[in-house]
Design a protein around this nucleic acid. Structure first.
Length: 113
DNA sequence: GGACTGACCAACC
DNA sequence: AGGTTGGCCAGTC
């Protein structure tokens, strides 16, 4: 019982919970997610967590800081899926295939869109 | 229970 | 202007 609730819920659940709150058509960077959930949480950990994401988590709304679809390095096919899903939600892309972060970046503070 | 692994990121060649 | 390095730290083996 005395086990810290933080560990009990695990970082995993917290990250999932935050990602679920990202509205359609908006994205967050890995580093931003980590910084929002628990300040010292590194972006790298968030990336690992996304790998285990279940289908009910909109993992595709998490991209690299510059809007790059970083999954591209690991699995180009999945990057294509991610781009499709984002485009379907109305996310604006640069010609390079990167997400336009200036327009689509989202943070919990701006609950009112 | 120590060592390895990363959907990262920034700094440095 | 592109490759390498190092820090980051929760999971997994």
């Amino acid at each position: 019982m005395l086990r810290r609730e933080v560990n009990q819920n695990s970082i995993l659940q917290r990250v999932y919970d935050l990602v679920r709150q990202i509205p359609a058509g908006r994205v967050m960077s890995y580093g931003q997610v980590g910084d929002t959930v628990i300040p010292p949480l590194s972006a790298r950990v968030v990336g690992r967590i996304m790998y285990h994401a279940s289908d009910d988590v909109p993992w595709w709304r998490v991209v690299g800081k510059d809007g790059d679809l970083l999954i591209l390095k690991r699995d180009p096919q999945m990057a294509r899926l991610q781009r499709h899903l984002l485009a379907q939600e109305g996310v604006i892309f640069h010609e390079d295939g990167r997400v336009n972060m200036d327009i689509c970046r989202w943070q919990p503070d701006e609950e009112e869109i």
